[in-house]
Design a protein around this nucleic acid. Structure first.
Lengths: 200, 200
DNA sequence: AGCATTAGTTAATCTACCTTAACTTTTTCT
DNA sequence: AGAAAAAGTTAAGGTAGATTAACTAATGCT
């Protein structure tokens, strides 16, 4: 089985230069997997030992509250890393569920492999420092938007920021990312349509 | 001026072991400063070249939207790092303002010093990788809470998670962190008081 | 291909939280 | 210490977004 690591290698190499031996050591730790629609990569309550990298299709990480309501934390299409990072880092049972939205390919890396890589190839520290830095600033922007924008503005931001995600997700899933009901998103879209007609 | 670097050294050493030379190199890049109440460490629109580390007192990072409403992004009491990280990392004019809530001491580190440190002492990559990892997971938890909890539940979480911040901040500032009005927080607190009386 | 499930729409009613405003209490600054 | 500013409280009225429900359209599954 010749797995194509080009995408993940290109992703890492955006931040740090690795030599072939280092890359080989990295890729030797990856497991290539596929998931059918609705397959779970991680289930709330289970140990969080792996981090995932999307190759094709789309994954969704979500939280289910005590009343059963889902909040989508992130979508991961090709070239996105995803896991329940809090529980991964702190070795706790997952709070999030990660599910394939559609038939997907992805790579899997265990926590112990990653920790090994940090120690044997310190450049991975730099690489992941930058990944975490980006992840942090992205979440911080989301907090700002959640605090300061209306649902409609958040929806428009989402369309603008994540056009590559749109073809993979339903409105219901977008609504649960924005923190609103699908019914209300439907209303927002109706209003948008009327505004765009009025423009003409 | 003999500045006390014990606190920041202890903070770094939680994640990585440094030798005295490395620590000296680090501390040589720090500037010790004090700020009076309402002094700005960073002003929206200005270059974001510095990261701050609280020693005493309390700092507040907030966003002001187009209507003039403030959203508090974070508080930084002793031993917290703070800056407008998105703009710091991407070398953009600040979106956030960082202000001293009360008379405070803090340390300042420039972006270029930090980048120099990453290159000359790679252990700092590890150290900041862990700091960013923690910052990311903290923000992600906040996103989950903002999406899935009511204002009252968020308030109770805040009290529980950040008891060390409470003595430094007003209710108005807490409200702007939670994304509600001070009037509504006042109502929540009134309801809480009545519940705690009913308990007896 | 066709049935069952799920997604999306629309509308009426409801509620968590906002706005405004008038007031009291606390804090800050000189 | 005392005036001025800011923080906090209370209450009436308003609005963004939730809930429920009934329906239509699209999609997935055998």
């Amino acid at each position: 089985m010749a797995v194509d690591f080009q995408a993940i290698i290109a992703n890492l190499s955006r931040h740090t230069e690795f030599n072939p031996a280092e890359l080989a050591q990295f890729t030797s730790q990856l497991t290539w997997r596929q998931a059918a629609r609705r397959d779970c990569l991680l289930r709330a309550g289970q140990p969080t030992r792996k981090i995932f990298y999307g190759l094709s299709g789309a994954l969704r990480a979500f939280y289910v509250d005590k009343t059963g309501r889902e909040s989508t934390i992130m979508f991961a299409v090709a070239d996105w890393w995803v896991t329940d990072m809090y529980c991964f880092v702190n070795a706790q049972p997952a709070m999030l569920t990660i599910e394939a939205i559609e038939y997907s390919h992805y790579l899997e890396l265990t926590k112990s492999s990653l920790e090994q890589l940090y120690l044997t190839v310190p450049k991975f520290e730099r690489c992941f420092r930058i990944l975490f830095q980006n992840a942090y600033t992205r979440e911080q922007l989301r907090v700002i938007e959640n605090l300061s924008l209306t649902a409609e503005e958040r929806y428009l931001q989402f369309l603008k920021k994540y056009p590559q995600i749109l073809p993979h997700v339903t409105q219901k899933q977008i609504a649960s990312y924005l923190g609103i009901t699908p019914e209300f998103l439907s209303l927002i879209r109706k209003n948008q349509r009327q505004k765009s007609i009025a423009q003409k």
